[in-house]
Write a protein that binds this DNA or RNA. Structure first.
Lengths: 129, 129
DNA sequence: CTACCTGGTCACCGAAGGGAACTTCAACGA
DNA sequence: TCGTTGAAGTTCCCTTCGGTGACCAGGTAG
């Protein structure tokens, strides 16, 4: 009732490239709130777990753990056990994760550049609509 | 690869630019799962509400409405009432939203390019760890 | 010993998000 | 005329997600 089974017009929006749902999922996993923070922080230099917590005070341990696991699973960061005796781990960005750095910088640059316009739009929307 | 270690300042690390929490919030509002879909779709051409639903079948009305409101509030899309008698609205991307298009394309391009590597990493993580 | 650090896990809980029905108004059809 | 369809949502319900704080195991500093 909702879907229209017309395979003829199914490929009506073939813009430039084929974008698979899988690509979207990947972006979902990698571009979320904390991932951006973590990747951005780790791009500077490797960090210990609690070092990351201090660098990003607003994240909780649980969310940080989850984010690091997710990024590790996707090959963006690497979990390195530095010391056994006093257990110490270090997280560092991988070569694959590094390919994201330019994009993250671009995103942060964009948000900084257009923030005034966005705040203006928000004020208009909130106040006069 | 990493900037020269800075033992003197144990302060926050100001890499190149100051990134405010506000910028992160903006990216959170604009880069979420459905926003990427919607912006990408609207970049092609303006669409009606149900046209968007058909273009992005996996989104629910509720989420689509919420996404469009959020994007509208942030000045990314514009809600245009075309016809009053049979109520008809059209959503179109704004000039501000258009500044995101390059970034979105870059993100989709990145995900397409590195998807194999990511899937490889996932297989390694899931299977042998 | 106690206190505190590291690197987590666990149980609870409120908010966010999805599914599906319902709404309103207008048009179409027999 | 009544029923159905379509547009553009809204409302309710329920599940899931993410945050909070507690807790744990092992080391180590006082």
């Amino acid at each position: 009732m909702v879907d229209t089974p017309d395979p003829a017009s199914a490929q009506e929006q073939t813009t430039t490239v084929q974008v698979t749902p899988t690509q979207r999922e990947l972006l979902d996993e990698v571009l979320d709130k904390w991932s951006l923070h973590v990747l951005d922080t780790l791009c500077e230099r490797p960090r210990r777990f609690n070092e990351l917590r201090r660098a990003i005070p607003v994240v909780t341990q649980k969310s940080l753990t989850a984010t690091l696991r997710r990024l590790e699973r996707n090959g963006m960061v690497e979990r390195v056990v530095i010391s056994d005796r006093p257990v110490a781990v270090e997280y560092r960005i991988t070569a694959l994760g590094d390919t994201l750095q330019d994009l993250i910088d671009a995103l942060l640059g964009w948000s900084g550049e257009h923030l005034p316009a966005v705040e203006d739009a928000r004020a208009r929307f909130d106040g006069e609509d």
